[in-house]
Write a protein that binds this DNA or RNA. Structure first.
Lengths: 348, 348
DNA sequence: CTGTTAGCGCATTCAG
DNA sequence: CTGAATGCGCTAACAG
């Protein structure tokens, strides 16, 4: 590979001049400039991004750590981040922690050691003390992605999770549902916790008895399924199930199948994040859709702003989710009238 | 950030010694080594990957360019590549060409300029002359991903596309189908071309009349839909539709809906790549499933081998696809007996 | 067993 | 308007 030295020799100028025509950083006589340009194209010279970065102390790259590259929602965020980064001329270094605290810390260090100009971090459900300390001390701008932590002094982007859950549950209550099962999942994850909170808010706001609601939280998928199955087989089974994420939705759907319950005939169903092309398949699932691509874009935007003004006050951006109402919550034959009467008779 | 110089000063040794304890590259007296280690932890020193890479002429990173980061199959490959790269201590620089030749060339250059140790390239449907020339001249190891080009002197990984298509079509023919529609898509893409070829092979092998088959190729999605709709409305409409990719499957399903045809009641259907969790939804779609994650892993493996032995003969690896047979091709009430008789009476 | 030194390829200050 | 020289932070001869 040719270096500036060979270009300079061929053009009969100093490497300083080559550098300046390359970067347009000072005036160069048109004629010499042309000689340099010719030498560049004849040698096929290309700037070495590494050496340039070392000298300038900027890499024009950003790092992205996601907690689960396999989940479609995160894959979409990666897509959005890549897109926005490319638009700014930044290259993207990607790492996946796979919800593993050690991998998360290692990946974060690896990216920082590569001197990324900024880092977008979707934290794992649980982080190492080392990572938390690193976050505190690190000077490189960091944006937290998807999983929003209230008290951290970082720019953060995520979806608004409580509001759509409240709206969804209110909708189902208005349709007559009184007993819900929520597949809440790992509530150490802010996203899932917030969705769970939205659920609680809606139940209380409607004056329903929280004791009638089944909230299944935990990290053991098999156990969640078992508990949901028990609920399905109990005398007063839930008439509506809400899943807080795609994996939880898969578990819920499998459990409904195991229990022999049809959707929406025997149980209503809705999911956050959900499945692609839900409009094409039965059951048509009511879905709270997160603008995952845009969340990624917004993260880059926050990062770029911070790169530009390091002292601005940290911002937390919440993107709105939309609810795609479909048959899975609409076409059920109606809730058992007795049970509805019970629930209404003895509000919380 | 602390540099080796401060560590060396604090430990009372030369930077050379610091470097050697860091890299374990020559023996250091246990006692001095300990002093260095102490100084490192007290200063919070971390190696600068940039400077290290510049000096060593290796970045311990690899580049990945995908043609469509939004397609789930490629997202899975990205996941697989990241996973395998991380296992080898390599960081991943990701770029998306979005099927745009200029972006592809720009991205490839950007990664190469960053001196990635190797590059995994999923080519766009059409590349610039500049990219082709670059590929020819470039010394950095390159592995072609997913889209296999027969005559190129590169390591390549992709799925075997002809065989499963042949098997699928044979299966459908055995079930009585004689008139197919293939959503072939952009046959400049090797993957789609190979799937199309597999289709042709199967038709010929069965002695069916190619003229009875409808092969819809092209890049204009609306036009493909229109032509499929025409086919659906023709007197002798196809009894089975095969989609060569997920986007094509979406188009086909929408068109079937427009035409008011039920699956599999009135038309059988199968798709390559398909949808996640197809077992949970109706219609349950027969799917040719590509091991996308493993394709990504295999690409890294090829690249690592090449990094280790640059002179080995280029290899092309084809991973096998599995066919998930489901109701969409199984439970149709049967093909129109007359038409079957016709087709059998006048073989190609 | 350890230290000194010369670059890796570039951007940039300082001279001219 | 252009060139010479310095150093970003590190590794790897080379020397002792």
């Amino acid at each position: 590979m040719a270096t500036m030295v060979q270009v300079a020799e061929m053009a009969g100028v100093s490497i300083s001049t080559v550098s300046h025509v390359l970067n347009g950083t000072r005036h160069v006589e048109p004629e010499t400039k042309q000689r340099v340009l010719d030498a560049i194209s004849r040698t096929g010279y290309r700037q070495d991004a590494l050496a340039r970065a070392l000298r300038r102390s900027r890499t024009d790259s950003i790092g992205l750590v996601v907690p689960d590259a396999g989940e479609p929602a995160f894959a979409e965020m990666v897509h959005g981040v890549e897109h926005a980064a490319a638009n700014l001329g930044l290259t993207l270094i990607l790492a996946n922690s796979a919800e593993n605290p050690e991998r998360e810390e290692r990946a974060t260090h690896a990216l920082l050691d590569r001197r990324v100009d900024g880092l977008i971090l979707g934290r794992a459900a649980v982080s190492t003390p080392g990572l938390l300390q690193l976050l505190e001390e690190e000077k490189t701008p960091i944006v937290l992605l998807d999983r929003v932590f209230p008290d951290l002094p970082f720019d953060q982007v995520g979806a608004d999770n409580r509001e759509p859950m409240e709206r969804l549950v209110a909708h189902l209550i208005a349709a007559g549902h009184r007993r819900f099962a929520l597949m809440a999942g790992d509530i150490r994850v802010p996203t899932l916790r917030e969705r769970g909170e939205g659920f609680g808010n809606a139940i209380r706001a409607a004056g329903l008895d929280p004791a009638d609601q089944i909230v299944l939280s935990g990290t053991d998928d098999d156990e969640l399924k078992d508990r949901l199955l028990d609920a399905f087989r109990a005398p007063a089974r839930p008439t509506a199930v809400i899943a807080g994420s795609t994996p939880l939705a898969v578990s819920a759907l499998r459990t409904a199948r195991t229990a022999g319950l049809t959707i929406p005939g025997e149980v209503a169903f809705a999911a956050f994040d959900g499945f692609n092309h839900s409009d094409l398949f039965e059951p048509q699932i009511t879905t709270v859709r997160q603008p995952a691509f845009d969340v990624g874009v917004a993260a880059v935007r926050l990062l770029a702003d911070r790169l530009h003004d390091g002292d601005a006050r940290p911002r937390t951006v919440r993107l709105q989710q939309s609810i795609e109402f479909r048959a899975s919550t609409e076409d059920f034959p109606g809730v058992d009238a007795d049970r509805v009467a019970d629930a209404v008779a003895e509000p919380a």
